[in-house]
Design a protein around this nucleic acid. Structure first.
Lengths: 217, 217
DNA sequence: CGACCTGTTGATTCTGCTCAATCAACGTGG
DNA sequence: CCACGTTGATTGAGCAGAATCAACAGGTCG
């Protein structure tokens, strides 16, 4: 097991039983042992050879793309149970970093093997999620974007009343196409409206999920 | 061959030799005969049963998603040679319409068949394209968005100096996360700057592709 | 204890939206 | 053939939402 320095787990590791297609994939692809990544560690970089997939045991991962002048767009956040690393070409067109500390299994494809249906399904789910995010970036207001993120995280974390924001404000902004100041302001607005409670900087109670859902329409 | 009423082809049909993975897919999936669609015709709708894929012989297709209150986001434009219709679940989460008249072959999956690698590759290319569009919507200015569309269309149409805008301004706006007035204004700005020439409402000459490329960084 | 980093808050600016008028292209019916 | 209505595109004026610039607070680490 490879351990990176200054490892720190922000949240308690929450192992998660994988979905049907994920466990099918895990058995088909001979997963490696868990590699531990420190917070802010690079998992793969722009231009790295693609092919392997990554299964998250615990922690949070961000997938990023850059404009030529360095503006960053976070394409996706992945959490425990997710598989990421899909790439159409032979090189990664994005880079992946751990947000908090994370534990990840590398899945290496058996050479010359035809793809399984579970692999295709995972790729298509990724596509569906990404398409959905296009609506967020293209057609929702800043308020609606933040509300949709809170609800999305709540759903993925399996608790519809409490959300753990593993990522800093800046990451949220780069995911939602906003600035971190705007994210901060909108959280405050939601607080003032009694929609949320800021238990701590990274823990938020959703006091009125329905009103939030109403918002992101 | 099924023919829809009031068929009209805006541009001359341009049959295109498919890429390697596409032709592999075509032979593997027993394509149906070409169906002709009139302009603005529905190819599949929200909630329709998914599973089939669609190969474009000629014409342009838009894939759309809606917010709950009816705002539209065009998730992708597809042109001759493209395959679309991928869906993770059993129902379509978006709808597809012809922009101009279009000729399309339906590809029906052989039941119980494992996916081919060419199918996965096409899905991953779709994912890559969609991720790239996230940058456009999340991090580019209005000028940069329009410039990136012009260059993208030029590249896909195989002529780096002339672009055919098959879709109305409103579609461009809903693809780029703008309003149609803004699209119109920016085209005028580009014209005034000598970057483009509006040969007609739907035909644009790129007088300075490099400057446009500079723009979208 | 001081430096640094993240987050919050305020003031101001500006990009792109909204609302509105006008125009051109096209089709229809008198 | 021309008047009229319709639709998409262009252009203008004013406004609003989010960005930018800036100051400051709180927590963490050396």
């Amino acid at each position: 097991m490879h351990i990176q320095p200054t490892f720190r787990v922000a949240a308690a590791p929450t192992p998660l039983q994988p979905h049907a297609e994920t466990s099918a994939l895990l058995s088909a692809m001979h997963p490696a042992a868990i590699t531990l990544y420190a917070a802010e560690a690079t998992i793969y970089n722009l231009g790295d050879a693609a092919g392997a997939l990554y299964f998250i045991e615990f922690g949070t991962v961000r997938i990023c793309r850059l404009t030529a002048d360095g503006r960053r767009q976070i394409v996706a956040f992945h959490v425990a149970g997710d598989v990421f690393g899909f790439e159409a070409g032979s090189e990664h067109e994005s880079y992946a970093e751990s947000v908090e500390g994370a534990g990840i299994r590398v899945l290496r494809p058996s050479l010359g093997q035809e793809p399984t249906s579970s692999l295709l399904l995972l790729a298509l789910k990724s596509l569906s999620r990404t398409q959905n995010h296009l609506i967020v970036l293209g057609r929702l207001t800043a308020n609606e974007r933040v509300a949709s993120l809170l609800l999305d995280l709540a759903e993925r974390q399996g608790d519809d009343r409490r959300v753990h924001l593993a990522m800093p404000r800046n990451d949220i902004a780069d995911y939602l196409g906003l600035t971190f100041e705007t994210v901060s302001r909108i959280l405050r607005i939601f607080k003032d409206q009694g929609l949320i409670r800021l238990r701590s900087i990274s823990h938020i109670d959703l006091l009125n999920p329905d009103a939030l859902a109403e918002l992101c329409q």
